[in-house]
Design a protein around this nucleic acid. Structure first.
Length: 347
DNA sequence: GCTCCACCGGAACGCCGGGTCG
DNA sequence: CGACCCGGCGTTCCGGTGGAGC
């Protein structure tokens, strides 16, 4: 943080590399945005619109597209409201409803009775149409909250997830079929050429002039496997390394080491969100995979001073599975846990 | 204005029924 | 059938937060 913006010869505007930064000339998902806008357009005329389901792998622009869309919709202030809920940090029914009420009434507005039921009643009374983005909706503890929102007349839901099945999993068939009326928008991995454009925007808005060569940007774009988040993290990492070296320009070695560590750094953000117990379990599986549930618990209880119960560890294992950090196979005694295919190897 | 209480959400727990493999 | 595992359910404890009472 310190000195980062002060006479930096490489970085002009560090905010450009933040996950939430969306360029004003966001053009990389024109087709998808058109589909989304068309689906939501009836709202402006006070007519019903279908919900939206944005699915595709991470780093393909689902969140950026929905944020960009909300910004455009906010220009119609008065006719409609918008709200964003990150379901990773707000995964309970109560938190989701609360976030939406806060977005609509302001953070200081408090209902007398702040129970989930009261929040829902408040939203049922809404008159202004409100577009709600549920980011990472597959992290919801109770996905039927989607249905709750769907049934509230003023709300229009835009849900984001890797796959639709991840979200609908565990919902009963009746609710699933209702939610199937959501309009699907698929986000495919970016091509290297598209990533090149996306990176060039960050170069133009975030770096000093002439500190990186076009060939270096192309190299980062090619290495990112269609994932914009990885690509941007690599570009940011290369710039950071050049700053640390006191270099006047970004060198090829900066690019190469940044590419190597970027995807791992992005993935380990997932690890950072785990508590100590979940972390220990993850490391045990990493060290002993394939690992049986019983053996995992024995080792875990042995290592920790205040181990959680078997029941809680089962919950943690399920959580780690949801995060794609672990995969489970087999049933009963044949049950085994392994690291997920893209899971970071702990050091 | 301050303190206390009542209520809520969330985490963790034990219990237990149901499923599956050997 | 027995051993093992999963996950739903009710309970308990804790921390936060308004509102009532002084």
């Amino acid at each position: 943080m310190l000195h980062r913006s002060h006479r930096n010869e490489i970085v002009a505007n560090a905010a450009v590399f933040d996950a939430g930064w969306v360029p004003a000339d966001f053009r990389s998902r024109d087709a998808e945005l058109n589909t989304m806008a068309t689906a939501l357009e009836p709202i402006l005329d006070g007519e019903p619109a279908s919900g939206l389901f944005l699915h595709g792998p991470s780093g393909t622009g689902k969140t950026s597209s929905s944020q960009y869309l909300l910004e455009k919709l906010d220009e119609h202030a008065g006719h409609l409201e918008t709200a964003t809920v990150n379901c990773w940090s707000n995964h309970s029914r109560y938190r989701v409803l609360r976030r939406i009420v806060e977005a609509v009434d302001g953070p200081r507005a408090r209902t007398r009775d702040h129970a989930a039921a009261a929040l829902q009643e408040r939203l049922a009374d809404l008159e202004t149409p409100t577009v709600v983005v549920l980011d990472e909706a597959d992290q919801l503890d109770e996905p039927d909250v989607l249905y709750t929102l769907y049934e509230l007349p003023a709300l229009h839901v835009v849900a984001t997830a890797n796959t639709k099945a991840d979200v609908l999993l565990g919902l009963d068939e009746r609710i699933q079929s209702r939610l199937r009326t959501f309009h699907d928008v698929h986000f495919a991995p970016y091509t290297a050429a598209e990533l090149d454009v996306i990176l060039q925007q960050r170069v133009d808005h975030g770096l000093q002039p002439d500190v990186i060569e076009a060939a270096q940007v192309r190299q980062i774009a090619r290495a990112a496997n269609g994932n914009a988040r990885d690509a941007i993290a690599a570009l940011d990492g290369a710039a950071q390394r050049a700053v640390e070296d006191g270099a006047e320009r970004i060198r090829d070695t900066h690019v190469e080491t940044a590419i190597e560590t970027a995807s791992r750094a992005v993935r380990s953000e997932t690890l950072d969100r785990l508590n100590d117990h979940q972390h220990a379990i993850y490391e045990i599986v990493a060290a002993t995979e394939p690992a049986s549930p019983g053996a995992i618990y024995e080792r875990y209880a042995d290592r920790m001073a205040d181990p959680r119960s078997r029941r809680t560890v089962r919950k943690y294992l399920r959580k780690l599975e949801q995060y794609d950090l672990l995969v489970a196979s087999g049933h009963a005694q044949a049950r085994e846990y392994r690291l997920g295919p893209d899971a970071p190897r702990p050091s």
